[in-house]
């Protein structure tokens, strides 16, 4: 199952997102950060990783995120798209979500926590990405 999680989303839908990703600029994404913080303020502060992110931003480096859809479980309800503060989650003709501009993602995780079907994971995108240590 673990393999499916990582493998599947890249398959049919990823073409669009992959192509759009290259067009994004850092200026665009910075502009939308304020809008994206609506409901998530409390939790953002708690996290140590966030401090690292802030430090990175000061240095002019921006944390990149990757939104992974697990299409097997997706029921195309459209909530993720509606919840995205930077409006990068688009919906295709069949109702399946895809990312318009992955670099514009601010990592608010609104889509992830509002997905009723456990079909979205938002991950940090480091060049040398650490393995998730969240597993108890």
């Amino acid at each position: 199952m673990e393999k499916e999680d990582k493998g599947k989303p890249v398959a049919p839908k990823s073409r669009k997102s992959a192509s759009s990703r290259s067009h994004s600029t850092s200026a665009e994404s910075e502009k939308t950060i304020d809008a994206g913080q609506v409901d998530q303020k409390q939790e953002l502060a708690e996290d140590a990783a966030q401090l690292v992110d802030q430090a990175d931003e000061k240095k002019g480096k921006k944390t990149l995120y990757r939104v992974v859809f697990f299409y097997e479980w997706c029921k195309s309800c459209g909530i993720c798209s509606a919840m995205c503060p930077v409006k990068i989650i688009m919906v295709d003709e069949l109702g399946h979500p895809y990312i318009e501009d992955m670099d514009a993602c601010i990592g608010c995780r609104n889509c992830e926590i509002h997905c009723p079907d456990f079909a979205i994971t938002v991950k940090k995108r480091y060049p040398e990405r650490r393995k998730t240590n969240g597993v108890a």
Binding site: M1, E46, R109
Partner: peptide, 16 residues
């Protein structure tokens, strides 16, 4: 920082 859904999925949902 919210725990990733992938972790929730692997850890808490019944695999069978």
């Amino acid at each position: 920082m919210v725990v990733e859904t992938e972790v929730i999925r692997h850890e808490y949902l019944r695999h069978d």
